[in-house]
Design a protein around this nucleic acid. Structure first.
Lengths: 271, 271
DNA sequence: TCCCGGATTTGACGCCCGTCAATTGGGGTG
DNA sequence: CACCCCAATTGACGGGCGTCAAATCCGGGA
């Protein structure tokens, strides 16, 4: 992360408390923490919101650090909801299949993020989740979690909050995606990713895209060619440099302009 | 509703149990039901999912049938969450204001629908809600509702479900809107509305749009002109007839084709 | 190191939809 | 009933993005 670069307003909400511990790198792949409290991701994980009194119970039911190799699935659409998952390291892509078999990418998930909440409604997963790189995750068996829920108003409140926030954001994103042009969509995508990396103590200005162009294009409702052209255009205009999957953001302000500053809130709010 | 027209597959999930009681009309505007159970909307209202044992308590705290005149606000963005609302009659539009003051329409709500759930996260409304026509609604004070929640695992479960389902749908809609062209967007909009009307016992093939073209265009991320042109095109092709706000759907199948049949699920799922 | 196949980039072209502008229509008021 | 005002429609035009096609880059294996 560039020295002498004042933490921009864009990242004001949460400069990383532990700047460079490479949460997502392989360096901690061997460690097997035995409680949520000791977990390096704790302040990003939803467990942080769980009341002290209940945390021991949660600790007891969580299955920690399960490995997931690249291209392997966390769960498949249609499967009954067996557990809620928290990404521990790596990146996970969620997607659906349209009736005629086309893949439809609905999200990219980073360490600390809860995945599978949208399955609670019908107790069945509406989407697939697949690892884009070798990853690890914590698993919370849903039945036991439900038992925990029924005895804990606090935890219920937390879950409602998580879902409500998620919904408000998704709704905002809906609006954004529906009315933005290609350059704005790509800008929103990059800034959002950048900010989420920042919260995880990673360099927000220089990172590796774990998804390929096809996934990005699909996620943004664009074509591969348009994404590629847009990135080239941004590079030509000095907003960033791209070499394959490696992105360096040079001018956050121009990107924000492109994204439409009125959507800054969205970018700021996202996990 | 046309006679001799077999209930199409599109509407298969819920033919109205009471075909033509005009839930939304003025005919019941005078009545002031005193309990949720007697309410004509009961089987659409979320109260239907509340356990028998808790329903009396819910009945006690609900403030019923509050009138709301056209163009008046139910709540404003930024206000603290005071109560969850259920639309009783009429139509409500929710929208945000972008930083530069543009209106951004995020949804249209029909009788029986819960509104304000996305405020739970931050206990503050992220959006405005305004009546498109003279309406009525039931108000559930949030503090008392929370008390009810903390003593009732069932109700908590219900709320999680409602939010989760809502989220899954919004996410699907996100995907749809982001990658559909104008004709498909308008088709999705009309079919979705049609189906929601059907569930409320109204004629799904002939209805009055309570929102103007500007709102529709805004909601779909299009311009007024494109919406107008698209409706004209659909009329020219025998899919429907439009006269001002009055729409008659003539060919559900073509509309479904336009919407992309792979999204039929979305249309079917929505409340 | 070279070679191969898939990922990515770049170019050419056409259509859809946004913009600007003019016309028509419809509801409310005097 | 006539008038007015705003909503809605229709037309002309240009730009952005999808499509098809070709070139280039990049990583992995021999």
């Amino acid at each position: 992360m560039p020295l002498c670069y004042s933490w921009p307003r864009f990242f004001r909400t949460k400069p990383p408390t532990v700047p460079d511990i490479s949460l997502v790198s392989d360096s901690d792949s061997g460690s097997t923490t035995s409680s949520c409290r000791q977990c390096g991701l704790f302040d990003l994980c939803f467990a942080q919101g769980v009341a002290e009194s209940r945390r021991d119970e949660l600790d007891r039911i969580v299955r920690r650090q399960k490995p997931l190799e690249r291209e392997n699935h966390l769960f498949m659409a249609g499967q009954p909801l067996k557990s809620i998952c928290v990404i521990r390291s790596g990146t996970v892509k969620s997607y659906r299949l349209s009736r005629d078999g086309d893949e439809i990418v609905t999200g990219f998930h980073l360490p600390g993020e809860l995945i599978g909440l949208d399955a609670i409604g019908h107790e069945r997963h509406p989407a697939f989740a697949v690892a884009l790189e070798d990853s690890r995750y914590c698993e919370i068996p849903y039945r036991e979690f439900q038992r925990l829920l029924s005895g804990s108003p606090d935890l219920n409140q937390l879950m409602l909050k998580l879902l409500s926030v998620d919904m408000a954001e998704t709704r905002e994103l809906l609006v954004v995606i529906g009315r933005l042009d290609a350059r704005a969509r790509v800008a929103v995508f990059l800034l959002n990713l950048s900010r989420r990396l920042a919260r995880r103590g990673k360099d927000p200005f220089r990172f590796r895209l774990s998804m390929d162009r096809r996934d990005i294009a699909n996620y943004l409702g664009l074509t591969i060619e348009t994404v590629s052209r847009t990135l080239s255009w941004m590079q030509k205009n000095g907003m960033l440099t791209v070499r394959g999957k490696l992105v360096s953001i040079l001018d956050v302000d121009s990107l924000l302009d492109r994204a439409g500053r009125e959507h800054e809130d969205l970018l700021l709010q996202q996990a």
